[in-house]
Design a protein around this nucleic acid. Structure first.
Length: 430
RNA sequence: GGAGAGGUGGCUGAACGGAAAAGCACAGGCCUCGAAAACCUGAACCCUCUUUAGGGUCUGUGGGUUCGAAUCCCACCCUCUCCGCCA
């Protein structure tokens, strides 16, 4: 949510921001309502002042009593008129996305995102690399057929070494982020509507989230959505910022707008596990913290030695709560292109304002809204894809990235004998 | 699911139909060579374009009763304790 005073004072900046984000909001209407609201508010407040004065002592005089009763009705009448105005005003206010930071490049959609750097050399093979799904199915690591049987499309079973790899990856996250002051958290995955709304994912993302009607709870699409609200209505001491967490949880997405997109395999599924970084920080530090998050993401993927590129999102591809956003895209050899594995956003005070998350400033001693930053550590499905693709061997086996070997009892998945066909590993057979 | 207790500022906590005590922490002032202590003032949100100044709102949320509600009534949310069920 934006500050109404800011909108009042800088309507053109807000309009410009909405335009850049390709979001249509009637700011003129909002300001009109705001003006009307203040008019009514002033009237009702002066009546109320009168009433307070009158009622500051017991009223026995019949004349005064009559007057007081009149005031009561007048106030009630004005408040009745105020109600729909405020309702509409709030509705519009909640539709306004966070404004992009000044240094975010302008662009309509993902086509205008900017590649800011590439890391590593694209993996070379002396054979034609296969796609991850074929390899994984041969090794019995991913089972989408049975998942379809029991749950429908866009689900998958991770099995055997793939299941073990998930925990190895999480261990790598622990070892990388805990020294940086991140507090590990395993959060609930169900969340109250007002909290979900506070994070800015309802207005323009309602179709994307699962809702459990019977219990009035949403399923989180990422643990960001629940770590933010964890500190709702709280005040941080200035010295405690930045407060860094990383959450590990299952994530649930309806993928309602993605018909026909990435339908194969586990690249885009309704449920996956993810380790997510989250930080509450000082407004002046948020740009720095955002870059720090990007640095952590790069560190994590570099440790896996997977080639990637960093993409800066243009204004049109930011999403509602973000003011700036970077993605990391890993090299996927079989597709000969980069695909998104990580994303980090600076949401400035947009979420904090909605959720009333403040801090006491060390210098001014005033209460101010904190800034929130989020970023992927590892999204399991996608990073598994990147590992399998980049570490595949001619014989259909998959090597384990060196950094993960210390968490596992194997260095390779497979190998397969080309004559005998696929040999699923026996060691972990259930 | 059943029974009981409770939700008040940054924190602790009183008032239980008539201006939201008090303490702690914090800030400014005063004092001082400087500080501490004591004392005074302030402290959330909104409005009056800004200041001065004034007004309004805020006792979990939303309604109701009343001239007046933290206080009484209704609904809902949440927390704690006990019982039941349970991985």
């Amino acid at each position: 949510m934006l500050d109404i005073t800011f909108i009042r004072n800088h309507p053109n900046k807000v309009k410009e921001g909405c335009r850049k984000k390709q979001v249509k909001v009637d700011i003129g209407k909002l300001l009109e309502l705001d003006k009307k609201k203040r008019e009514y508010l002033n009237k009702s407040e002066s009546f109320r002042a009168e009433q307070n004065k009158l009622s500051s002592q017991p009223v026995t005089d019949t004349q005064k009593l009559k007057k007081a009763k009149e005031l009561k009705l007048k106030i009630k009448d004005l408040e009745k008129k105020l109600e729909p105005i405020e309702k509409e005003l709030n509705f519009i206010l909640y539709q306004i996305p966070n404004l992009p930071l000044d240094d975010v490049p302008f662009g309509k959609d993902e086509k205008e995102n900017i590649v800011i750097r590439e890391w590593g050399e694209k993996t070379k093979f002396d054979f034609k690399p296969k796609d991850y799904l074929g390899i994984a199915q041969n090794l019995d690591l991913i089972d989408v057929k049975r998942a379809a049987k029991v749950s429908g499309t866009r689900f998958g079973f991770l099995k055997r070494e793939a299941a073990l790899l998930e925990f190895a990856l999480i261990n790598l996250v622990f070892d990388t982020l805990i020294p940086e002051g991140f507090i590990p958290v395993i959060p609930p995955v169900m969340i109250k509507p007002e909290m979900m709304r506070g994070m800015g994912y309802i207005e323009r993302g309602r179709e994307e989230v699962y809702f459990i009607e019977k219990d009035n709870l949403y399923l989180v699409g990422t643990s960001e959505q629940i770590i933010g609200p964890m500190h709702a209505n709280e005040v941080f001491e200035g010295k405690d910022l930045p407060k860094r967490y990383f959450g590990f949880s299952s994530c649930f997405r309806r993928e309602a707008g993605a018909y026909g997109k990435d339908t194969k395999g586990i690249f885009r599924v309704h449920q996956f596990d993810k380790a997510e970084m989250f930080s509450f920080c000082h407004p002046e530090e948020s740009k720095k913290e955002h870059l720090f998050f990007l640095e952590m993401e790069e560190k994590l993927i570099q440790r896996l030695s997977i080639p990637y590129r960093v993409v800066q999102m243009c204004t049109g591809d930011l999403g509602t709560p973000a003011a700036a956003k970077y993605d990391i895209e890993a090299w996927i050899p079989s597709e000969e292109r980069f695909r998104e594995t990580h994303s980090t956003s600076n949401c400035t005070d947009f979420q904090a304002r909605r959720l009333n998350i403040r801090y006491r400033d060390l210098k001014t001693k005033k209460l101010e809204f904190a800034h929130t930053i989020n970023g992927t550590a590892f999204a399991i499905g996608r990073i598994l894809i990147a590992i399998i693709e980049n570490y595949q061997q001619r014989d259909g086996s998959v090597k384990i990235p060196k950094v993960l070997q210390r968490y596992l009892k194997f260095k390779q998945i497979g190998p397969l004998s080309p004559k005998k066909g696929v040999q699923p590993p026996k060691k972990y057979k259930v």
